[in-house]
Design a protein around this nucleic acid. Structure first.
Length: 845
DNA sequence: ACGAATGAAAC
DNA sequence: GTTTCATTCGT
């Protein structure tokens, strides 16, 4: 939160501030705000017409707004920014990566690099950006019919009132100014979003504003929406066909759909998505909104609490106390019941897991595993829900399931990231199953982990890796994270106003504060991304806990990020844990995973049991030595900074933040929804547009620097050496693959502008890690991986690490940091290389 | 504010 | 063809 807004946008809110805000756009006045509130309250469903009238009135008051389509000219405020072109989109998406690599580079330099990358970029990939740009443009135009790109030569514009906007924006745009605002930028301002929101709507929104309000209102009050909405959605057909963005634009503009009511009901895919993820309410707008919302969230909260409780117990066992305890204790108090629940759940999970493992073992194939895993997960979820609900009434449960279930499913499909073993050997090493699933919902782990993790983990690690009861571990892990997640959830709820009664006390507090009135709804949006992600995560989190035997620590969250935007990185978990350790028959293990794991550990004890830990340790050491951790950290920090924005692409940021979630959920999710139920409401016109935009934006592929690097090896940035690039299409494209490939996580070494050394080192180290001690298979596999480096000599510049591995490392790092010394690695040489160029990027489709 | 890049649009 | 501006942020 904090970081994000600083940029330009504040202007909006504090118009007074005067800062530099680029644009003033129509500003939002406090007065307006009031009005806004009123409106929201009063009507939710009034017809558009009325709304419009009101709007007009408002407009009159506050500003002039011409709703008219014609373009008007002058309104200074409006300023919609022209849509970004493909290259800009690309820049936006990758700039952070570039910056990471080259921290010192100024933007210009970064831009150059980006240009180079762009030049090198595979046409196919480029096309994606182009298409996105086009789509966005179309949507934008639709929303702003009269919009002219250029003020025409005359650009009197600036001069006139130039004062206002620093930057640009002069032209007018026609009708719905509202939309303009939403332009990507604004939307971004994460924090202020509310403000922005408000700003836009009241005055100049025109009909749209009303719609938006109504929509928002609806959100706030599920019942209404539910009543009005129709499940079917007549509109859907049309809408569906169009891209969400487009639809959104239409809706917002009011052009296309006459039906007010339906609109209200239907939220844009994005919106829906968010809602769903949040569990809040209106799932489909369709039905039983209320219950759904609550239940899932609620359950989640409970789960968290429960886990917390468990954790506490364990922790006690381990060590009597923790400094943090206070909070936890409170939670604990009431939560015993939950604990019980958790236990049950756990049991169920265990069983399932066991089954899963078996199946997994049997099926070496990734695909199979994946499937199984997913299924399993689903089952788990189901089971959990089923069981958990005891308290909850059956009816609610059922509904919840419907609601949540569906969403979950979709999410899981879309949002989960599954990494197959194949790609990354390393993963295998650590995780027998080899399949990693990253769930968005994972939110759990991160935040808390930090705090607690450090403490606890230390303890655990020190003392008993093994000793700790399996359960505990798991629970613990989840628990810790859970708490955090809960907290987040709470916040989210607060913002969003979801009704979460039960959440912990803590939650309430927060909620209260934030949720005040209608505004709250609005508020919710701003944070949208975060909220969404969290929500999503929440829904699933439980499932993630599964790892039983393994120790919690293993999981990793890439905690570092935690602070970041507060989002949750989510947990990344490696489910599989260690078959090797306990029960796997050698034969089975031999097949695939175990060995891999062995590879990792090579350093420590190759032979005996290679626990994941050892692998981790090895990895950690390597990373530390190479300075990779440092770079990761840096990235994380960077991520914090930019956290709000969509582009957060940064590694950690990625996962943590939206990127991951977003992406996944975004594209696929939205689409699904759309198709399924297209609801697009007019609700938040602009907001949606933005959201859609962001969603899409996030879904755009992000390429690891390595990719580009390879392409252009030697040259200095300046000219694009097209030659090289062209030759090496390598993998850039591959990332685009639809399936999991998209989601693969690449850990790449980025070469510093000109420095090759680091890179080489990194590579070497990576190779070491991977191969050392490994059987042939390991290396073999590695090669097999998509990544194969183009040049045989450099093994793999980009090595794939499993998320789990990374997470583990991160966890270690945290510990390390906390203690100052690396616990695991005694010798660990935590030296930090200035900037080890390591990037983790996720490519989505 | 400026600039670095690319691209789209309006000249 | 040229001019504007879209994004990003360190100077």
């Amino acid at each position: 939160m904090k970081g994000s807004n600083r940029n330009k946008d504040h202007s909006a809110e504090g118009e007074g501030a005067g800062k530099r805000p680029k644009r003033k756009c129509l500003q939002w006045h406090p007065l307006l705000a009031k009005k806004l509130l009123d409106f929201s309250e009063e009507e939710e469903e009034d017809d558009e017409e009325e709304d419009i009238d009101k709007v007009q009135l408002l407009g009159a008051d506050g500003l002039e707004q011409d709703v008219g389509e014609t373009e008007d000219d002058e309104s200074p405020e409006q300023r919609a920014r022209r849509p970004m072109n493909a290259f800009l989109l690309f820049c936006k998406r990758h700039r952070s990566l570039v910056r990471q690599e080259h921290p010192r580079l100024d933007n210009r330099g970064a831009t150059k690099i980006l240009a180079d990358w762009w030049a090198v970029l595979d046409p196919k990939e480029k096309q994606k950006y182009t298409d996105m740009a086009k789509e966005y443009k179309d949507a934008f135009m639709k929303a702003n019919p009269g919009y002219k790109w250029c003020p025409t030569t005359n650009k009197p514009v600036k001069s006139p009132t130039s004062a206002v906007n620093p930057r640009k924006k002069l032209w007018a745009f026609p009708s719905d100014s509202s939309r303009d605002l939403p332009s990507p930028k604004k939307a971004k301002t994460e924090e202020m979003p509310q403000l922005n929101f408000g700003m836009a709507d009241p005055t100049q929104m025109g009909g749209l504003s009303m719609l938006l309000l109504a929509g928002e209102h609806a959100l706030g009050t599920p019942e209404i929406s539910s009543g009005t909405c129709r499940p079917d959605v007549s509109e859907s057909s049309e809408l569906r066909q169009k891209s969400p963005l487009f639809q959104f634009a239409e809706i917002s503009s009011g052009t296309s759909h006459p039906d007010v009511p339906s609109k209200q009901c239907q939220a844009s895919a994005l919106f829906q998505f968010a809602e769903i993820s949040s569990n809040t309410s209106q799932l489909g707008g369709a039905e039983p909104v209320k219950r759904c919302g609550k239940s899932a969230l609620f359950q989640l909260a409970e789960m968290c609490l429960a886990s917390e409780g468990v954790k506490m117990e364990e922790s006690k066992l381990i060590k009597a106390k923790e400094s943090d305890g206070g909070r936890i204790k409170e939670l604990e108090k009431g939560k015993e019941e939950r604990e019980i629940k958790m236990e049950k759940i756990d049991e169920a999970r265990l069983q399932k897991e066991a089954e899963f493992e078996k199946s997994a073992k049997e099926n070496v194939r990734d695909s199979k595993e994946l499937r199984n895993f997913e299924e399993l997960r689903m089952d788990d979820i189901m089971g959990i829900k089923m069981e958990a609900p005891k308290e909850i009434k059956k009816e609610e449960l059922e509904e919840d399931q419907k609601c949540s279930h569906f969403p979950d499913f979709s999410y899981s499909a879309s949002s989960k990231i599954i990494i197959s073993d194949v790609p990354s050997r390393k993963d295998h090493m650590c995780h027998p199953h080899g399949i990693m699933i990253i769930e968005d919902p994972t939110a759990l782990s991160k935040p808390e982990k930090l705090k607690k993790k450090k403490k606890k983990n230390k303890m655990d690690r020190h003392g008993n890796d093994k000793s700790t009861p399996k359960k505990t571990c798991k629970k613990r892990q989840s628990s810790e994270s859970d708490i955090e997640s809960v907290m987040y959830t709470i916040e989210a709820v607060a913002k969003g106003d979801w009704g979460i009664e039960k959440l912990g006390e803590t939650a309430r507090k927060k909620v209260r504060t934030s949720s005040s009135g209608k505004g709250s709804i609005l508020d919710a949006k701003p944070p949208k991304k975060k909220v969404k992600s969290r929500e999503k995560k929440m829904s699933k989190e439980k499932s993630s806990d599964t790892t039983k035997e393994s120790r919690p620590q293993d999981f990793i969250s890439i905690s570092a990020s935690k602070n970041i935007s507060g989002e949750v990185p989510e947990g990344i978990k490696a489910e599989p844990l260690t078959p090797t350790e306990d029960a796997l028959p050698p034969s089975l293990s031999g097949q695939a995973k175990p060995e891999d794991s062995d590879c990792h550990r090579k350093i420590e004890t190759c032979g005996s049991r290679k626990s994941e830990r050892s692998c981790k340790g090895a990895l950690y050491k390597t990373l530390v030595s190479e300075g990779m951790l440092t770079s990761l950290r840096a990235n994380v920090d960077r991520g914090k900074r930019s956290s709000g924005k969509g582009n957060s692409s940064d590694h950690e940021g990625c996962w943590n933040e939206e990127s991951w979630t977003f992406n996944q959920s975004g594209t696929s999710g939205s689409k699904k929804f759309k198709k399924t139920k297209p609801k697009e409401d007019s609700l938040l016109g602009s907001a949606k547009l933005d959201e859609e935009f962001e969603k899409k934006f996030n879904s755009l592929p992000q390429y690891s620097p390595v990719t580009f690097d390879r392409k252009c090896v030697p040259v200095p940035r300046k000219k694009k050496k097209t030659g090289n690039m062209s030759s090496e299409p390598t993998k850039t494209s591959k990332g685009s693959g639809d399936k999991w490939s998209n989601k693969q996580l690449f850990l790449d070494a980025i070469h510093p502008t000109e420095d090759d050394k680091p890179k080489e080192q990194l590579q070497r180290s990576l190779a070491k890690v991977t191969e050392t001690g490994c059987n042939d298979e390991c290396s073999h596999n590695r090669e097999a991986t998509e990544t194969r480096s183009s040049t045989p000599e450099m093994p793999a510049v980009s090595a794939f690490f499993s998320l789990a591995a990374l997470a583990e490392v991160a966890a270690m790092e945290n510990v390390h940091r906390g203690q100052r010394s690396t616990p695991l690695t005694h010798d660990g040489q935590p030296k930090e290389m200035p900037q080890a160029p390591v990037l983790i990027s996720c490519a989505d489709q």
